[in-house]
């Protein structure tokens, strides 16, 4: 098992652009839907890009806004002004 990282988000209007961005920016990501939430798994590394989310919502998205919709995660997280990265071995 090559270290899978994962992020679980609420499945609501607010999170949808974030979910879409993640799936777009991480081609090997895989979304598992369950009632109310979606768990996105990805081998090794997963990135949430502020630019991608901003483009989808038509305003600047601050990576800290992830706190409004995140439900859970697996991996080590790093955050800066541009992106959030989940990975192992950091």
């Amino acid at each position: 098992m090559a270290g899978i990282v994962s992020i679980t988000l609420q499945n609501n209007d607010e999170a949808r652009p974030v979910i879409e961005s993640i799936l777009h920016d991480n081609p090997s990501a895989n979304a598992n839907y369950m009632p109310g939430a979606v768990k996105i798994d990805c081998p090794e590394r997963l990135v949430v890009k502020a630019e991608s989310v901003s483009a989808r919502i038509g305003r600047d998205w601050d990576p800290q806004e992830i706190h409004l919709t995140i439900v859970s995660m697996g991996g080590s997280l790093d955050e800066d002004d541009e992106e959030l990265v989940l990975s192992w071995g950091a």
């Binding site: 369950m34 109310g36 706190h67 919709t69 439900v71």
Partner: peptide, 23 residues
């Protein structure tokens, strides 16, 4: 998620909202 599936909108809302702190 089970609470949502059982129609308990209130519990799933506090559950996931609490869980958002969990990250």
């Amino acid at each position: 998620s089970g609470a949502a599936y059982n129609g308990d909108l209130a519990t799933v809302t506090f559950g996931f909202s609490a869980q958002s702190d969990e990250a």
